[in-house]
Amino acid sequence: MTAFESEADRSILELGRLAAERALSDAACEPSDVASLHVGNALAGELNAQAGIANALVSRLGVEGARADRVENTSASGASAIHRGVEAIAGGADVALVVGVEKMSGGETAAVTESISRLVHEREYAQGLTLPSFAGIAADAYLDRYDVPREALATVAVKNHENAVHNQFAQFRTSVTAEEALESPVIAAPLRLFDCCSMTDGAAAVVLSREGDVSVEGVAGATGTHAVAARPDPLKITSVRTAGERAFARTACDRDDVDVACIHDAFTILELLELEELGFYDAGTAWRATQAGETALDGQLAVNPGGGLKARGHPLGATGVSQIVELVWQFRGDAPTARQVPGEPETGLAINVAGFGNNSVCTVLSG
């Protein structure tokens, strides 16, 4: 990975190159070994005036001759690129390099906001609905339906910020208290500033091959209803549930085997909803488990040990790849002791979500 930060000095191509070279070095691979390059990116054209980013990275990395493509799936672009890389290996490639990269500071805040706002259905966009507003509606419904105290959402933010304190690649390496989270500015009621992820620059990369110290047991994607207002229940994210079911169906693993999970917490409410959709907790109960410490580093299921999107940062195309990097570090014991999941974790899960559940990609790993 590169450091995730609010405004990187490097260009989008340099961020991608740096992460890729670090991954190749970690895998003891030469550029000439790479048969397939897949770049997860959402907004290079809109924010960085960079077309053909995969071809440009081929040149920067010296992997001419490799198959190369850009994979765009909004905020799930990273995991979708991982999926493409896995398919390349299954199709006969010996080595696939996957790079996720985004430089969101390449555009003015208004331009970035406009680009992200366009992820919703055109009718909803016309009515001024945004991803934060959908998250606010879902949070309000969750708190009301299950009689959940507002402090439960703050618990997610506190946990993930505490994990990020010890992540040298995280954008926010400061802890927050529940009081600070509850008193921060309102973004989309009942969600406040510390319930929402930020705009970020950064890149992450992995090398996939036929043999290695970590195995991709299963990866699967699924789509959901594009128009959120057309969903029968605002608390059901069917793409997450379906992607999870499909990924587990391709493995010998079950939910009880998972030691660590990287959950797409673009908003604190999503961590709770996704844990429930993935089958780790019954509907309306993930908040109790979180408050009881079950999702802490030393809990039954360690969730977002790197800080999640909330504190590590969320450079759209890089997020899904950074989740896989985090799981590999946890399996190897490479994470700093202060955020290393105890007990030598062996099975991990990552869920990367596009939009507000329009498309999701779930990956199950073992190490």
Rank of each mutant, 00 (worst) to 15 (best):
Q300I: 06
L43K: 05
P305Q: 07
V341T: 14
A249L: 04
G320A: 06
S360I: 08
A283F: 10
G100H: 03
E180A: 14
G313K: 03
G308L: 09
V258E: 06
A296K: 12
A181Q: 05
V260M: 02
V39D: 00
E151L: 14
L129K: 00
L272F: 12
Q340P: 10
V34G: 01
N73T: 12
R250C: 09
A311D: 04
G244E: 12
R123Q: 02
S75G: 05
V39C: 04
G299N: 11
E64G: 11
T363W: 14
R210E: 13
P190M: 10
S59R: 08
F172C: 08
L143W: 11
C197D: 10
A188Q: 14
A23D: 13
C262Y: 05
D201M: 01
W287Y: 14
H38G: 11
H121W: 07
G279D: 10
I137C: 08
G343L: 08
V34E: 02
G308P: 03
A141H: 06
L278M: 10
I324M: 02
T74V: 10
Y281E: 09
C253N: 06
L97K: 10
A286R: 05
A350Q: 08
H314V: 04
L57D: 04
R250A: 15
E274I: 13
H264E: 04
C29P: 03
L316S: 01
P31N: 07
S366Q: 07
A96V: 11
L47D: 06
A296C: 05
I89L: 09
T238M: 09
V341P: 09
A302S: 12
T285S: 07
Y146V: 05
A66R: 09
A27T: 11
I324E: 02
T174L: 14
K159V: 04
S198H: 05
V34K: 02
T130D: 07
L129P: 09
G100E: 01
Q323T: 12
G308D: 08
N160P: 08
L97T: 11
L273R: 09
D147Q: 07
G343S: 04
G348N: 08
L143M: 12
S209Q: 09
R312S: 14
A20Y: 11
A76M: 15
M199F: 15
R246A: 06
D140C: 05
